[in-house]
Design a protein around this nucleic acid. Structure first.
Length: 204
DNA sequence: CCCTGATTCGC
DNA sequence: GCGAATCAGG
């Protein structure tokens, strides 16, 4: 893979958005995070434009002539196509950059057909046992791949999700690699940290 | 150990 | 210019 214009553009964009080098590398594909970092430095944008780019520009207005060879400018473009470039430079107004730049147009399908109660005892609290079908399916699926480790094998980055009855032989911990920070693997994090379901239907 | 970016240096 | 290896943290 080489640093084509597009790839560099993606790199710039993502780096500007604060994405990590590894994330960028993953996105681009065919490169390692080292390559990305190396390129970032070569491009001279090791300094992320974050926080107050406008302020930095105002405080340090470099009277530098731009050697930018504008290819688009040389050609008189008939307004045939509104090929608008999302490139915004020299914006007088302070840009409010959103850290969450997810261009993924997720079709929020209301596939919430029914609520499936979790069959497993939930470690945190068996309170709101309302897990999305997807998450549940995910869990039962990874449960097959679970390393099924014992209490002694638990380390700081093994999923500590218990499965089975502790009073039985058939008891083990998931043991898969945890999601950074969390005590569980990705799948189990999904069911462990549910977005506070509206739990107001208390009996009274 | 996982991750982060920064730097070096042979290619 | 490129990026793996390495360094230096978190």
């Amino acid at each position: 893979m080489s640093w084509t214009d597009e790839r560099v553009e993606t790199l710039k964009k993502m780096w500007g958005e604060g994405q990590s080098a590894s994330q960028i590398a993953k996105e681009l594909g065919g490169v390692t995070r080292n390559a990305v970092i190396g390129k970032v430095h070569r491009l001279g944008l090791s300094n992320r434009t974050a926080g107050a780019p406008a302020a930095a520009a105002a405080a340090k207005p470099e009277p530098k002539a731009k050697p930018a060879a504008s290819k688009a400018e040389a050609k008189p473009k008939p307004a045939a196509k509104p090929a608008a470039e999302p490139e915004a430079e020299a914006a007088p107004a302070p840009e409010s950059e959103e850290p969450a730049a997810a261009p993924a147009p997720k079709p929020n399908l209301p596939a919430r057909k029914q609520i499936i109660p979790a069959g497993q005892p939930l470690p945190p609290q068996p309170s709101a046992n309302e897990i999305s079908p997807e998450a549940l399916a995910k869990v039962s699926e990874i449960e097959k791949k679970a390393k099924k480790i014992g209490l002694m094998e638990l380390t700081e980055r093994t999923c500590k999700w218990p499965v089975g009855d502790p009073a039985t032989d058939d008891f083990w911990f998931c043991g898969l690699p945890v999601q950074q920070g969390k005590p569980y693997c990705e799948a189990h994090v999904g069911v462990a940290f549910q977005p506070m379901s509206a739990r107001r239907d208390r009996r009274r």
